[in-house]
Nucleic acid binder design. Structure first.
Lengths: 336, 336
DNA sequence: AAATTTTTTGCAACCGGTTGCAATTTTTTT
DNA sequence: AAAAAAATTGCAACCGGTTGCAAAAAATTT
């Protein structure tokens, strides 16, 4: 069906190698042959088969993108950036939907069978061992949104979750809140754990009173709403730090349904800065995670690893920033 | 690096063909040989290389998924369902991000080079010629969310947009609205055009007064908000039919910012039923597009085409339904 | 113009599988 | 038990490229 190397070679009156070389960069062909080949190729509509090339070179230009959070709007950016950035560099994403199934083995096998050149594991809800499994199998891997570990043996790109938790506590202090609550994402996520640690530590240092603590079952509006309803029993909560914007919006609506005003009676601080956080109906003050930087960096790293597989593991952490909208009181200038 | 057929054959003491056959379903091998081979394969950790297989069989089990709307939450479901459904059937999605670039040629080349077995073009904002280009190139293609055309030469899966527009008009009539407005998505999208046609036709039949008409530049909250601000000049609007939930939410906030109450002073009818439509702050009455059915059907079709490429083109349209929440008045029972 | 160096070219083997075909083995029929 | 039919097996060619190597051609040096 498709035109092959051989046909081009025949038409151009050169060897198959010559044709191959004109389509391989870095290979040596004289200007004359190149011209003949290109003419013949154009006439025939020839494009080299990447499959055949992959077999011969043992490189596929395919990058596995494994994710398990297909329902969070934050992932729209992730998909958009990943795909367009890989595309720009001549690679292609092979999407793997992990939902539910978390045993690494199967996925390592799968991606190995497709001979992907590298893998980006984009999730914080999976143990670090998941990404490591690829490493062990000899597949270059980046753990995006992964957990920072001093003894890293895998590239990690993300944020310092502990520091972000701390930042949340400091923000509450600045705004004059005393009795605060924590409404985290799934308790098993490393990102949640780390933020909790940072938040509690700093809250203690600043003498904030953590009067309630809860976790949403997953990163959804509904889970946030439900978890908040339970927390609401404690009437003294002045502000809530949520582990995710979606959860936060659910929580806000639970609070409003209970007849409380935001931010007058209760304040909210979200996490991620998804598009909806800017919507009037929520106008959420939130901690922005620099998704763009994280993705760009991950792509750069994975492509780098393909070129140089035994580059030593790196940790890249990006700073988060507060995006101030209307769900927290303004900074308290009264002194204290 | 990886274990190959040959090594397994040697260890099992059989020919390479025998090994190949035990890993190809439908091939004939005796129970005895199969056992020997499987044992050797397990011991060696062998998995057949899909690349090599692809080259030999001219089948890759890769399905191109081309999309250009990575910012709409409606696409979260699309990605989730597509990937998991393909996965279930032993295929894999190769994602193509079209953002901006709309000349088919380049993408046909690209997907052809990767020898994808089929392509799903998931967009209503591209001319039908885009999907046709794959068809012409001999690549099985499904145009999901595509436009119904009597003289179809490409599989189309989606909804009857004209009918949905009509449905919107009827809904307004039922609820007792007279002066209505239309706030469509991008004017160039076939889905928008069709909905407008259906809406206007039925509005006329039912003697509704279409007092304003506008189009958002793209499927975003912001575009919706801006477009609505302009429409708002016409003070007589009683209800607005929006071409997309995101646009609709933007429009609602524009209206609220102008001090009008929803649904008392102005009603809204959205389109798609994204998760946020159910959020308390919007509680949007909307026309639900059965994404799940559409995707499942698309996947089934594309896989079907891979097996039987000259299956004749089919149109599959699924019914939309009204999801009644709080952004429209209840049905008017007063008689007219 | 001959000798040397550099560049270009084609040959042939290889990447890791599949598959048509003929030979062999096993099973069924008579 | 022999003959016929069916199932299994291995050989070898093939899928469509790449690449090391030696020969040939071109460019440079003497």
């Amino acid at each position: 069906m498709a035109v092959t190397l051989k046909e081009v070679a025949e038409r151009a009156g050169v060897s198959r190698s010559a044709v191959s070389r004109t389509f391989t960069d870095g290979a040596s062909v004289s200007a004359k042959t190149r011209e003949k080949v290109e003419k013949a190729a154009k006439a025939l509509g020839y494009k080299p088969s990447l499959i055949a090339r992959s077999l011969a070179t043992n490189r596929t230009k395919l990058i596995g993108l494994v994710a398990n959070n297909f329902q969070n709007p934050a992932f729209l950016d992730v998909f958009d950036l990943f795909t367009s950035e890989l595309q720009k560099r001549g690679f292609r994403p092979l999407l793997v939907n992990l939902s539910g199934d978390t045993s690494p083995k199967k996925f390592v096998e799968l991606l190995r069978q497709y001979s992907v050149d590298g893998v980006i594991v984009a999730t914080s809800t999976l143990p670090t061992s998941f990404a490591n499994a690829f490493q062990t199998a000899g597949i270059p891997v980046i753990h995006t949104f992964g957990k920072y570990q001093a003894n890293a043996n895998v590239h990690v790109v993300g944020i310092d979750n502990e520091h972000c938790g701390s930042m949340a506590a400091r923000t509450f202090k600045e705004r004059g809140y005393r009795k605060v609550a924590l409404l985290g994402g799934p308790e098993s996520a490393t990102s949640t754990k780390d933020r909790v640690v940072g938040f509690l530590r700093t809250a203690k240092e600043l003498e904030l009173d953590v009067v309630a603590k809860g976790f949403a079952e997953n990163y959804t509006y509904k889970a946030g709403r439900e978890a908040m309803s339970e927390l609401l029993a404690d009437a003294s909560i002045e502000a809530v730090f949520c582990g995710d914007d979606l959860i936060c919006m659910g929580a806000m609506d639970a609070v409003r349904a209970a007849g409380k005003k935001i931010p007058e009676e209760i304040g909210f601080l979200g996490f991620n800065d998804i598009a909806m956080a800017g919507w009037d109906a929520y106008s959420l003050t939130t901690i922005r995670q620099p998704i763009r930087d994280i993705i760009m960096s991950s792509v750069e790293l994975v492509v780098g690893m393909v070129e140089n597989p035994d580059r030593s593991p790196e940790i890249r952490l990006f700073p988060c920033t507060i995006v101030d909208r209307g769900s927290l009181k303004p900074v308290d200038r009264s002194g204290n």
